[in-house]
Design a protein around this nucleic acid. Structure first.
Lengths: 187, 187
DNA sequence: AGCGGAAAATGATGCCTATCATATTCTGAG
DNA sequence: CTCAGAATATGATAGGCATCATTTTCCGCT
């Protein structure tokens, strides 16, 4: 075994990380294999030593991106919050201008749901699994009320999707209307 | 004037109509000029006699698609409803399985917002205008409460976007959770 | 009847794409 | 120091893409 045992796995992870950023920022279809491999510091041909094809990568990217979004939503300073306190703080973060302007590290739902709906069933399955896990995490913060968790994520992701597609003034209005109102906006 | 005076305008409308369906069903980027012109009953080269380029078409498509969505949301049997009665009836229609499974004639927000966010500013401006007009229509049905209109559309469009990206069981759960509960589901 | 000019079709350009067969480079083991 | 074989790079193929210059078709007017 000429290379360190985990070398290939680490490269694979690097590719997924680069793709997760690019897919969210520019879209799945709009991101070429060439560009994502360059972003990962490799050349295009080697891609197929790691993934059967581009759609196979998409499933892994969804896992990665949802895990990142879960961290933003449930941890990173929000670990101990429950109920309305968690909603307020998490909502301020999710519906912030920073999140609107940085899709590349943000939630995968507004960025990728539409394309996943049109791609192959593997991507849909991965999206289902990852979304369900996220919903379980949110449900936990809401006293087990899963329908409430679904409505919350629908509202937030829908607001972010709209805010990204409109001019700044309307975007701010949308984010403000959907943000829990009790506390001032996160900087 | 060798052709009927409105000939060109009618052809242009036909192209927009075909594109509005294809863009929502398959995505803006995934729809080639060739395919959309064929769907309109024409050949690809003539496209540029009607539009400067593909992005110019997108703005017109957004107008067209939003107008259609407004008709579904505010008219077609819902003209006289206001307040909770309208919410219930419109919500049953918007969050139906039929709407989930027929993006080609449905709301443009879950289908196209993500791509509009990445395309040129003209598309964004058209999306802003069309969305604002839709919000005005909804606000009217809600006693002038515009933030409530925004939240409603965010929730519904977010729910539909998620429902389209997941398997059928989870999709039904999402649609049900976001649907006003007072009446049974529209067939 | 046939002419003129607008509308649409044809066909070509050059670029970008996913994929894959082949070659090269790297690095731990002997 | 060399070697073997895995990991990556190179280069090619075939197809799709947006766009545009050119040609053909159409149809109301004279």
């Amino acid at each position: 075994m000429p290379y360190p045992a985990d070398h290939k796995a680490r490269t694979r992870t690097r590719i997924i990380g680069a793709a997760a950023r690019l897919f969210r920022e520019q879209g799945y279809r709009a991101t070429s294999v060439q560009r994502l491999m360059t972003a990962a510091g490799l050349t295009h041909g080697g891609f197929y030593a790691h993934f059967a094809d581009k759609t196979a990568l998409l499933a892994d990217v969804l896992d990665h991106a949802f895990a990142q979004a879960r961290a933003n939503l449930l941890h990173r300073g929000l670990d101990d919050l429950r109920g309305p306190a968690w909603i307020t703080r998490a909502g301020r973060r999710y519906l912030s201008r920073a999140h609107r302007d940085a899709p590349l590290e943000g939630c995968a739902i507004p960025a990728l749901a539409a394309e996943v709906a049109r791609e192959d069933p593997n991507a849909r399955a991965a999206f289902s699994r990852a979304l369900d896990e996220t919903l379980r995490g949110i449900t936990e913060r809401l006293d087990g009320d899963r329908p409430a968790a679904i409505r919350l994520l629908a509202t937030w992701s829908g607001a972010l999707a709209m805010a990204r597609a409109v001019d700044d003034a309307l975007a701010d209005e949308i984010l403000a209307a959907c943000r829990p109102a009790e506390l001032p906006v996160e900087p």
